[in-house]
Design a protein around this nucleic acid. Sequence first.
DNA 1: AAGTGGTCTAGACCACCAG
DNA 2: TGGTGGTCTAGACCACTTT
Lengths: 253, 253
Amino acid sequence: MNAMLDSFDDISRAAPEPIYLQIKNLVERRIDSGEWPAGQKLPSENDLVNALDVSRMTVNRALRELTQEGLIRRVHGLGSFVAEKPRHASLIELQDIALEIERDGGTHRARVLSLESVYASPAVTELMQLGEAAPLYRLRAVHYRGDEPLQLESRYVNPDLMPRFIEQDFSSVTATAYLLGQFKPDEMEHRVRAILPDRQTRELLRMSAGQPCLQLTRRTWKDGRVVTYATLTYPGERYELGARYATDEYQLR
Amino acid sequence: MNAMLDSFDDISRAAPEPIYLQIKNLVERRIDSGEWPAGQKLPSENDLVNALDVSRMTVNRALRELTQEGLIRRVHGLGSFVAEKPRHASLIELQDIALEIERDGGTHRARVLSLESVYASPAVTELMQLGEAAPLYRLRAVHYRGDEPLQLESRYVNPDLMPRFIEQDFSSVTATAYLLGQFKPDEMEHRVRAILPDRQTRELLRMSAGQPCLQLTRRTWKDGRVVTYATLTYPGERYELGARYATDEYQLR
DNA sequence: AAGTGGTCTAGACCACCAG
DNA sequence: TGGTGGTCTAGACCACTTT
């Protein structure tokens, strides 16, 4: 048996959540809290089977998915270990800029430029798959790391799906965090471009002339409808996107 | 039963490859070939179980992973369907520029600028985790879509791990394709930046002055060692990176 | 009611790694 | 040799969707 397992929360079979997800969350919590630091050996599948009284296939699925997500790595014949590398800003994760900044030891602050109801332009109507022009909420905000502007956020939100979006105070909660609290996206799309900022963007991000920006656009779907379309613009001098993956089987095509 | 299944290749139990992978590949081939177009309903899990004589859990794993990869989508109670959206250049896939161009209907051509053995600079020594400076292979090439330069590739390769790299003709096979044929990476790292190109890069990519580039750097590991470190530079005016994901459970943190 | 996918079980065999 | 993860099986129950 494994001493680490003494205080494991019980797994609920009354399934508010599938068991494999409960196991994933349990392991994630241990890792996030620092209780299991990088390199730490995890309990074996059999340990978990015994401690939680579930089937091995269920444990295996949980650990396999954590591997795919880069949180742990597994060595055949040896065991499972907390992944060495810290998490990067990743394109497949729905990254909350505040969490990202704070994880790197910075202080996040947001300044809301505007939060209003606007009428969708043809381009935005198309992007949000509205069928015809309709009112939308629009948020514009600058996110700072300390005193340094790091991201200009320009976001449209479908008011049918998120009616209370416009009432929020986005200087204390990021839009990403608010939206994540409201729904679980079932699909999203990212695009990354290099652009030259217009004058206003350059000033808001306090960039020197001629420097490029990294621009990430993200659309998020729920039940086949676009909930939000966000354009996130970063100063090229001060930001890069990164991701690191460990895989069982590479998805190459 | 399902008429689509008549001509299914048999699944080999003598396991050169796990069965769930054989099933994934089988479905991928049908989709890639266009035999199963977007929106097409797939055989149900039970159909596949019967046709291939495997267990349902195995079929389920194959289809679940294809869902995570965005190739199909599944609706509880309804069935599985080929995903609507074509594939994008994705940051989690090891993308071969030639395949990407040809998938979009273009013609790929590569011009090798140089392929030589060089001594690693301190920065590259660090990036490739060599411990101390050592000889490396270095490839520089431009990739064209038709007549339009689309990517400048600058790549270092560890000669201990890929001794024959320098003998290849990279005007007919891309480095990515060659390397993928030689080994299966078990880890990789991507970073994306917006930069201003130097004069040489600008000319090679035939860009107008002042325009930014999207720069992707990629490191690939095998057995804990860096095999290759590539810097891929794209003209910002003509290229964007994109990815779309369908998920069961979002990886948000 | 019938078909579908989502999940889970309790076994099993194997390949890999350490001592 | 014993522990580990990788895979597979043949069932099962359930929730969801359509007929």
